[in-house]
């Protein structure tokens, strides 16, 4: 329902940030953002307002979250087929065989 696009803050002047969206710049208002924003931060823009400062470490966490989901499914034959090069992790043992 709500189109949100992340961008990187270039400048902050009062309650207005200039944000880079992959080479395109737009001013984004900071009235409702959850935390103070500085140049270099990522923000989530919705209708010209930043609604969230995205902490850089959370981006990494998202990636590891997905890795974890896949590891949990390692014993799944089809997943293993696609990701054959990755070794099954110990905790995948209890997720069952595909025909279980």
């Amino acid at each position: 329902m709500c189109l949100g696009v992340p961008g990187r803050v270039l400048r902050v002047e009062g309650l207005i940030a200039t944000v880079d969206f992959w080479g395109l710049k737009r001013q984004v208002r900071l009235d409702v953002v959850d935390e103070p924003v500085q140049p270099g931060d990522y923000v989530l823009n919705h209708v010209g307002f930043a609604i969230r400062r995205i902490p850089a470490e959370e981006i990494q966490e998202t990636l590891s979250l997905y890795e974890e989901l896949l590891r949990a499914g390692e014993s799944d034959m089809m997943a293993a087929d696609v990701r054959g090069e990755i070794e099954a992790s110990p905790e995948s043992a209890d997720s069952g065989e595909p025909d279980a």
């Binding site: 961008g7 499914g73 799944d76």
Partner: peptide, 22 residues
């Protein structure tokens, strides 16, 4: 670095879809 925020890798997507099927 902004591209890091585009989680669109096709092979990862297929792996997740396979996990879902499983």
């Amino acid at each position: 670095s902004a591209n890091e925020l585009k989680f669109r890798d096709p092979s990862q997507a297929r792996a997740l879809a396979d996990r879902l099927s499983g």
